[in-house]
Design a protein around this nucleic acid. Structure first.
Length: 440
DNA sequence: CTCAATTTCGT
DNA sequence: CGAAATTGA
């Protein structure tokens, strides 16, 4: 063993650029162990994300090798394995990016206890969000509950300095690197590939469209959103670096990054966000209808714009944001079903699925979230006609309707009966006691 | 300075 | 309606 050593535990920050924990460790220590612990407890939550994770890890390992180091892989309980590695290499301590979920908080707490026991230091670093959760607080209270005031202070706040990748990473002598298992299978055939360079390339290619963002980000068929969310989810991209490259802090795209930070600081203060209504006094009288939930889940509700969104989710492990609003609004506001199973379905498939964003947005749509204004039930047909005016999005994802031209595809129940019979597409789900305007 | 009343505003 | 900022005692 030669020189002072530290361990950098990677979690959902799978990059070398603008990685405060890694940059600081490499600047302060001769020897650094970049470590990832494969946690069997997390492995089977989402096959899509597990595959994306492994792709990102493989690339991170290659990048670190290029810098003279490596990515050390262990399997098991992240806390026990991290401590074990730290002791093996006689490290002085451990650094990692702070995170907000209940799982992450528990990991941090256990890690701190073990570090105390073994006389190691534990240091938490920023990097998962643009502005650290808890850094901005309203006059009275620990976190912002409404987006607009948060956005105001977020835009005006001082952001930390973006950090370069370390020029060199040197492992301690004799550390066993460990191996990545064979790339696991995902569920979605058209899922994007994980990794820092893929994310960087996507960002670079997409940035020129920023000037037209307002015109195109809600166009379902145009499909011109950044699609950076999975890379942000796994930290292949630094949210700060993305915001900086967008330039103008007031840009509506940067505002979307602020929404992400907003839900992270909500989750840090309300870790039960995935299970419990955030707003106390929220009415939660959901119906129970297993058949309707199944139809929604599988994309056969008979509401083309909803089915299109769900089919895209299955095919790509990703859904256009506008389609997320429409499908989630349809489940909760039209079918009257609980947001939790909807959240669980998104969570299984989405490459970008995480606790703060996924839960926060579902609660916002369901009306149990921070938005104190009574949420108006959304009309899926009107949404479809506004955001998919020619029906191209529906025809792309619902092949049963591929022969129906124009916006007529949004209301197949209005087609002549003899045409409908040829389509092999179900009539819209019925909701007991409801007479939706779009069926009149 | 603190704290309560009041005003403003909400993807 | 309730959160957050502002005003005022």
């Amino acid at each position: 063993m030669s020189g002072r050593a530290a361990v950098v535990l990677f979690t959902r920050d799978l990059r070398v650029h603008d990685h405060p924990a890694l940059a600081t460790a490499c600047a302060a220590f001769d020897r650094v162990v970049p470590l990832y612990v494969l946690d069997p407890a997390l492995a089977d939550r989402s096959a899509n994300r597990t595959r994306f994770l492994h792709q990102s890890l493989a690339e991170l390992r290659d990048t670190l090798r290029g810098l003279g180091g490596d990515l050390v892989i262990r399997r098991g309980d992240p806390v026990a394995e991290t401590i074990r590695v730290a002791r093996e290499v006689d490290a002085e301590g451990i650094g990692l990016s702070a995170d907000v979920s209940r799982h992450a908080h528990r990991r941090e707490r256990r890690l701190r206890a073990e570090c105390d026991r073994h006389r190691l230091f534990l240091r938490l670093f920023p990097g998962v969000t643009v502005v650290e959760p808890g850094e901005l607080r309203p006059g009275g209270g620990d976190h912002y509950k409404v987006f607009t005031p948060y956005h105001r202070v977020w835009s005006a706040a001082r952001w930390r300095e973006e950090l370069a990748a370390p020029r060199r990473v040197t492992l301690p002598d004799g550390v066993a690197v460990g191996r990545l298992p064979a790339l696991p299978k995902g569920e979605s055939p058209a899922a994007v590939v994980g990794g820092e360079s893929v994310g960087q390339r996507r960002l670079t290619q997409w940035l020129p469209t920023l000037q037209r963002y307002d015109d195109i980000h809600d166009d379902l068929a145009g499909d011109q959103t950044s699609r950076l969310s999975p890379y942000l989810r796994f930290g292949c991209l630094s949210p700060l670096a993305v915001a900086n490259r967008a330039g103008d802090r007031g840009h509506p795209f940067v505002r979307q990054l602020c929404w992400r930070d907003f839900y992270y600081q909500v989750t840090a203060a309300f870790p039960e966000i995935a299970a419990k209504a955030y707003r106390r006094g929220a009415t939660e009288d959901w119906r129970s209808d297993a058949a309707a939930l199944d139809a929604w889940t599988e994309g056969r509700t008979g509401m083309p714009i909803v089915d299109a969104g769900m089919r895209q989710l299955h095919a790509e492990g990703w859904m256009h944001n506008r389609a997320r609003l429409i499908t989630a609004g349809y489940l909760t506001k039209v079918l009257g079903l609980d947001w939790r199973p909807g959240l669980a379905v998104f969570s299984r498939w989405l490459l970008d699925g995480d606790v703060p964003d996924n839960s926060g947005n579902w609660q916002w749509v369901a009306g149990t979230g921070n938005d104190s204004r009574p949420y108006r039930g959304l009309n899926p047909v009107r949404q479809a006609e506004r955001y998919d005016p020619d029906g191209g999005y529906v025809r792309r994802w619902v092949p049963e309707l591929a022969t129906v031209a124009g916006k007529a595809v949004h209301q197949p129940w209005r087609l002549p009966a003899e045409v409908r019979r040829t389509l092999d597409y179900p009539p819209p789900l019925e909701v007991p006691g409801a007479d939706p305007v779009w069926l009149r």
